[in-house]
Amino acid sequence: MEFWFSEMHTDNVKASIRCEKQLYSGQSDFQRIDVFDSAEFGRFLVSNGSVIFSEKDEFIYDEMIVHVPMAVHPDVKHVLVIGGGDGGVARELSHYEEIRTIDVVEPDEMFVEVCREYFPDNAKGLDDPRVTIYNQDGLRALRTRHGEYDLIINDATDPFGHTAGLFTKEFYGLCYKALKDDGIMVYQHGSPFYDEDEAACQAMHQKAFRVFPICRVYQAHIPTCPAGYWLFGFASKKYHPLRDFDAKRWKKRDIKTWYYTPNLHTGAFMLPKYVEELMEGAEDRKK
């Protein structure tokens, strides 16, 4: 028997993973959630037909979205994670002792339950006593926060689905307001490779660029993402991701990683020419 999970990365490109079996399928108020077991990627979670993460490659983006800002900001005490109901981001944050609170805003309770059951290694991050989970819409949670956070991590990945509200001008504006005067926001920036993703990627940069004084993009290689290539956004009120990057301080922490290194930190901001041009294009179209 052959059992394949397929995801359309564009109308003309299909990525397939051979599955051992399907472990779960359910429909929440927000999304259809499926969990599969595969030989190559281990267990992986699918939302509305798109792979969200797999056991094999989740470490890459969880590390990249957490350690990059944490190696720049000198003193992070309060963190807001939007999305992130799987717990992977919280797990990476739990390495840092100076953090006092980690607020995880995940509207979909079912998503958290499914992750707890099928991805206990990620979900254990949610058991850190500093974590509080809010089952709330991200925009709603942000509206009432003023100058409270040192770091906001937007872990939502889909600019068109049920998390569309987390890729809008109002979202970046509300994040700006919720951050302290030296706060940093990092976010999933999508994949820039295919033509149809290009515009969304550019629009995202344009919106953040117009809200934050410092706005840079960095990259990682993530096999289950479209074209295996993924971008993150680094938006900040004060700290520059390279000029304020303190490699020595971070090394002293002696955190065990599989992807992130201080060398890679710098390298991740060195973008291919076509991505650089894409981003510069967005910056020029100031209104």
């Binding site: 819409d137 925009l139 509206r143 049920h162 569309a164 809008t168 109002e170 979202f171 504006g173």
Partner: peptide, 18 residues
Amino acid sequence: RMQDIERLVGALADIKRL
């Protein structure tokens, strides 16, 4: 949909801010 209401309210909050 509720998520669109959140966008509207979020945008009004941001318009007031800016």
